[in-house]
Computed example of a mutant assay.
Amino acid sequence: MSRVLVLNCGSSSVKYRLYDGDTVHDKGTVERVGEPGGGPADHETAVREILDRVDLAGLAGVGHRVVHGGRRFSEPVLVDDAVFAAIEELVPLAPLHNPANLAGIRVARAALPGVPQVAVFDTAFHHTLPEAAATYAIDRDTAERYGIRRYGFHGTSHAYVSRRTAELLGRPYDQVRTITLHLGNGASACAVDGGRSVATSMGMSPLEGLVMGTRSGDLDPAIVFHLRREAGMGVDEIDDLLNHRSGLLGLSGVNDMREVLARRAAGDRAATLAFDVYRRRITGYVGAYYALLGRVDAVTFTAGVGEHSADVRAAALAGLDRLGISVDPARNAGSGDRVISPDGAEVSVCVVGTDEEREIARETRAVVGATG
């Protein structure tokens, strides 16, 4: 029951970790999948390479990250033919990710026929959203027919980070209200009340919400109509614009926050504006989620930018002192999982390194144990 292999198939990479209990025995990342320049031709080839190099003896299960579980999957599940087919049906909701996730499952099922395969869904953590939080104000029949609702993403990360925050504060998870900020190339905010997601910034797709590396985040939907009518842009071209040529990249020319900060420090006006738009959006979500929760015990930063950029953390929470939220500069400059707010602060500000693979391994063991 202790050995679990985790496969995290992204749009152009495959991460893997082999756990024995809480100990990582092997890990790695296969990058540039399907891209020119020497990477594996596709995800199936990449997963086969991983399975050939990893010690697979005594596996209790294989845990797979699946981005979109739609309305059907509210928790991790053992994969059988029916589950596999259901994930395939959800491809239109996550065309860049679910096919890659399915490729990993397909190869692992064929190579390890006696080993349970478990699908862990990014959207599952957000199935606790209140109906009013998950519902868009459009025609109900149209929404129902086409599956239009807020699903939310980064759920595995928000689940791990909110639980780890409670541990950091030495408090029971079911009694802590946390705003988690997953700030990487993709970015999302989540309000977690006693282990339950009650609000999250990403919506039907990962495009909504915070400003990201290449995604716009929130914008007036009429912009899409305007671009179609006035610029003659097609649906695919607008999709590419908003998902791949917007966000920090669209505003400053680079999508790496480190480069944005360097250009800002050198006086670059585009980078300065990009940073201001980015941090202002975060501040707005923190304030909104504070109002929704009524009481906040912690605001926690995670993922690449959230964990490593003291400048972003300080700027995103600047001016929130009246809400009991502030950052201690010396603590903010440190490293590792920690509290960075001053002693006695009404709201703890924390930094936690996310570990989606460890969370997937934990949930895989729970499913295998329940079905074994």
Rank of each mutant, 00 (worst) to 15 (best):
G58W: 07
Y173S: 14
S74Y: 00
V286D: 04
A133D: 07
R358C: 09
V6S: 00
D174P: 03
R264T: 09
G334K: 02
E307R: 08
L112H: 11
V66K: 00
S216N: 10
V66A: 10
C350P: 00
L249Q: 09
V77S: 03
A94D: 05
I50K: 01
H97F: 03
D239W: 02
D81F: 03
M257W: 04
D355K: 08
N255R: 15
P113V: 13
D174S: 09
R32I: 14
A270V: 02
R65H: 05
G344W: 03
V66S: 08
R358L: 15
G353W: 03
E307C: 07
Y290E: 01
C9L: 00
H64A: 09
V347M: 01
L78C: 07
P342G: 13
H154L: 02
I87P: 05
R322L: 12
G369L: 02
A270N: 03
G334I: 03
R177V: 00
V198C: 10
V368T: 14
S12G: 06
D268W: 13
G104T: 03
T45F: 01
I105E: 09
L261D: 05
V47M: 09
D268V: 13
H97W: 11
V277K: 09
A361N: 02
L93G: 06
V67C: 05
I87T: 04
A330M: 07
G372F: 14
E131C: 07
N101G: 14
I50L: 04
G324Y: 00
L96Q: 11
G195W: 10
V347A: 08
G234P: 13
Y19L: 12
D236L: 15
Y278H: 11
V299Q: 03
R145E: 06
G213W: 13
N98D: 07
V277R: 13
L242P: 00
A271Q: 05
Y160M: 09
I179Q: 02
D122M: 03
E49I: 07
V254T: 15
F84I: 01
R149L: 08
A333H: 08
E357Q: 05
S348L: 00
H43F: 14
T354I: 02
F84R: 13
D337G: 12
A119W: 04
A189I: 08
G234W: 10
G70T: 11
V224H: 13
A85P: 00
V351M: 04
E144N: 09
M212K: 04
E167K: 05
Y173K: 08
S335Q: 11
A330E: 14
L207T: 07
G28S: 09
D174Y: 13
D220C: 05
R171F: 06
N101M: 03
L320I: 12
D220N: 08
N185C: 01
A231E: 15
D337I: 08
E44K: 12
